[in-house]
Design a protein around this nucleic acid. Structure first.
Lengths: 333, 333
DNA sequence: GGGCTTGTTGCACTCGCTTGCAAAAATAGG
DNA sequence: CCTATTTTTGCAAGCGAGTGCAACAAGCCC
């Protein structure tokens, strides 16, 4: 197998009997080409199976059309659906996503951003981890756009997309209160990212406002397994909570399963649970979880449209609302 | 913000007081550079924040280092974990993944492969959908490697990675038989992809060998929701099955939930269920599903190592075994 | 010191494409 | 029909890197 025999613009030009530039212009929207030559070029290109070399084009234009998605734990339901939305919308905007997995080492986000620079990505979208300030500066300086999703770090020049976590947490509290709950708990992981902490703080603040104490328990990472451990801790206390706001759905699923199977608690009659993210599993009938939906498509749309803007614009922060999805894990509603 | 001011090899050369080639050689493993110049170059590069332009390098070398992942429904648990494994291992092999989402239109796989060609991807890994023969021919002809995962189409020049679905299905039947089940059913989607059909056929064949009839029911796509519909159909028959092999876990979860919540069936005492994929949810205590594990890391490793080989080699097909993971949805074990 | 090998270095060309510029062709106006 | 204007076209100069080749320096042996 002879490696890489590509057909170039020159080949097409020869076959069509025109100059190389004519070919180039045919594939450049808005360039001046006569109908006749355009026809002959496209015909020749078709016959030869020609495709513009995006590497070369990117080199010339200084715009690769590549957007890097920097993600860890990308098989997590929420992350995966966000990636799906992003890749889809990027493609619709005729950009292409490069996926960088930062599961391994600790400075892998930095490594990833270097990769992004090396491929002259037009932008990077960061879904996890916070890179070093110097690296992001480098990115911005080299003309790369930066989008930070749910990472609250203040960084001008970058677009920050966040949810109104505090408000959602408050609404969650009120919903639980209306359901007649009295012993509130917040189940968190030890990840302590800004958005997770905002949920905790919002929930506790709401508790204080109503003169009610909130038990906070934190454990491990934001997973199903942690949910089970947190259940263990919460349900062996002398004052067993009857309302739990879980920092995300995955954790809520683990907690609910443990509540039911280990502690024989009925949901929602003995225990009300609210989650966050609205992952697919939240709608499964075993969970039927009341939760806040991440507006995944909105997030993706905001990111992509910002990337499409010519000038970044002043306002570089979007705060979106999480919609409460009522299901059966909370009484009433 | 002035767009794209990149530092090039020339800049580094000037600062280090050497020629451009010296810089190039410093970053090319195995090239002849003296210790002294190498030091000065790396120093200058560091100071300027230089990164080799992968676009230009790719253009010269005719090797971009890019591998396209062509996927639909990438937020499905199994797909997502496969993508995670692939991106991770590709990065370890110092390649980078481009993610192409083929959810939208019908000829989107073709579109995707064209993109792959345009970016001079070294290879494409196809996780979903079968592209047009002419397109894959084009890919192969242009030196691109092709990996097909769980798509049985015969295509030489490409690596095909498949599981031994038939055998897994047979083992599943035997396990259910040993559990004392008598009324066997196979719950399938209407997707009819080769690997799904192989599971069905394997299961039915095993049934025939044991002189037992297998009820086959097919519906919709391979999702949780379809599982619920299939449960509806299967459990309203006069001869209610007591053993169901589901074509994948997602569908199994839907089926189990419907079995329990709508038909009040106890698992595994009244109904045994086996799934396929071993997605995370299968291990959740609400499901505790006996299933076959996709060897995700093995699959990724096979794909990546094949891509690293200089010559594709004759044998271009790998058949991996799916390991049976015993959990509580089947009696005994 | 002369002849030789070994190791480094710079020049110049190449990869495939875009684009400013000026020449050529087509169109319009008188 | 000739000139003025507009459109189309080709030339050539890049973009940022890699690499064969020849020149050159250094080191070795006799």
């Amino acid at each position: 197998m002879s490696r890489k025999i590509f057909v170039s613009a020159k080949d097409v030009a020869d076959r069509a009997g025109v100059s190389r530039s004519a070919v180039s212009r045919t594939f450049t929207p808005g360039a001046s080409v006569s109908e006749e030559t355009r026809r002959r070029v496209t015909e020749a290109a078709e016959a030869l199976g020609y495709h513009v070399n995006h590497l070369a084009r990117g080199l010339m234009r200084n715009e690769s059309g590549i957007v890097c998605l920097i993600v860890s734990e990308l098989d997590t339901p929420y992350r995966a659906s966000l990636i799906r939305a992003l890749t889809g919308q990027l493609q619709s905007a005729s950009k292409i996503a490069m996926l960088i997995n930062t599961d391994r080492s600790d400075d892998s986000v930095d490594q990833a951003l270097r990769q992004a620079i090396s491929y002259r990505a037009d932008a990077s979208i960061i879904l996890s981890g916070m890179p070093d300030r110097s690296i992001t500066d480098l990115c911005l300086k080299s003309g790369q756009r930066l989008v930070l999703i749910n990472r609250d770090e203040d960084r001008d020049g970058a677009l920050m997309i966040n949810l109104n976590d505090r408000d959602a947490a408050r609404r969650s509290f009120i919903a639980l209160l209306r359901a007649g709950c009295r012993n509130f708990a917040f189940a968190n992981s030890e990840a302590m990212t800004p958005s997770l902490m905002a949920r905790e703080e919002g929930f506790c603040a709401a508790g204080r406002e109503h003169g009610l104490e909130v038990t906070v328990e934190r454990f491990g990472s934001t997973t199903y397994q942690s949910g089970a451990v947190l259940a263990q801790r919460l349900f062996t206390r002398e004052k067993r909570p009857d309302a739990i706001f879980c920092v995300n759905d995955l954790l809520a699923c683990g907690l609910m399963d443990a509540a039911r199977h280990q502690f024989n608690l009925a949901i929602p009659s003995e225990l009300c649970v609210v989650g966050f993210d609205d992952i697919e599993q939240a709608s499964w009938s075993s969970y039927n979880l009341t939760t806040f939906a991440q507006p995944v498509d909105r997030i993706a749309a905001e990111a992509v449209s910002w990337l499409d803007q010519v000038t970044p614009g002043e306002v570089n922060s979007r705060r979106l609302e999480a919609e409460l999805v009522w299901r059966g894990s909370v009484r009433g509603g």
